[in-house]
């Protein structure tokens, strides 16, 4: 029933698609993380002028579909003259840039809330002790709050990584030849949906399990003090 020849003949296409999926996913995860840490901090601020705008941003990006966000940027940016006339237009007219931007904004919103939750879960005693030792606010943040917050955020962030990997499949709707687009090309060329999409599914599954394994490895390292002692 399954024609393996189709799969083998198109393996290079799938490998190229996988590469595109991987760099899109990890580039937006990395950029998103860089943006998310200050945003997460801002969400813990008591100053409404700092907290409220960031809340609105995460509320919008977490409450709407990634596909619509991507369309707003890819199709929508050209509606505005100031974008068309700006020096950034060559970037906005390219699908990869729009996808990278949409994915980064999306993952940054989710990650900011993860960071916020992890920061708020810091035991008050640790902060008080650090302050009592004479550390400044910045030093407390750098030495006490952030390291333990990152550690606490790891399991949730692992889920976010997988969410982003799977979410990146929508890039195939804006002419980017990622793993999903590779499958769609194979399907339309041979009209063989099982071969085309099951192969892509296998590739995605392998990537998912690789990420799960990576997070487990990191957890072993970062959560070593929480593991029960070996008998």
């Amino acid at each position: 029933m399954i024609d393996l020849e189709i799969v083998v003949a198109n393996l290079p296409l799938y490998v190229r698609g996988t590469w595109t999926t991987l760099w899109l996913t990890f580039a937006s995860l990395a950029l998103g993380l860089v943006v998310a840490v200050p945003l997460g901090l801002a969400r813990t601020s008591r100053n409404p002028l700092i907290n409220y705008p960031v809340w609105l941003y995460t509320y919008f990006f977490r409450g709407t579909p990634l596909l619509v966000q991507l369309f707003m940027i890819y199709y929508g940016a050209g509606q505005f003259a100031f974008v068309r006339e700006s020096s950034l237009w060559p970037l906005f007219s390219q699908a990869w840039f729009c996808a990278l931007l949409a994915f980064t904004l999306n993952t940054a919103a989710y990650t900011a809330e993860i960071v916020r939750g992890a920061i708020l879960a810091t035991p008050v005693g640790e902060i008080e002790a650090a302050r009592a030792l004479g550390m400044s606010r910045r030093l407390v943040l750098r030495r006490i709050v952030l390291p333990s917050a990152f550690r606490r955020a790891l399991p949730a962030y692992g889920n976010e990584m997988i969410f982003m990997l799977h979410g990146s499949a929508v890039a195939s709707t804006v002419t980017i030849v990622d793993l999903t687009a590779a499958a769609r090309i194979v399907n339309s060329r041979y009209y063989s949906p099982y071969e085309a999409f099951l192969t892509a599914a296998l590739f995605y599954m392998a990537l998912t399990f690789a990420i799960v394994g990576l997070v487990k490895l990191l957890e072993r390292r970062w959560h070593a003090h929480l593991r029960p002692l070996a008998p």
Binding site: G167, A169, A183, P193, F197, L198, Y204, M205
Partner: peptide, 21 residues
Amino acid sequence: TLIRGVPDLVLMLLVFFGGQM
């Protein structure tokens, strides 16, 4: 395990095209 390892868009395309077949 398998369903949660694959993007929903890929599964949708699989069911839409494969299901019709």
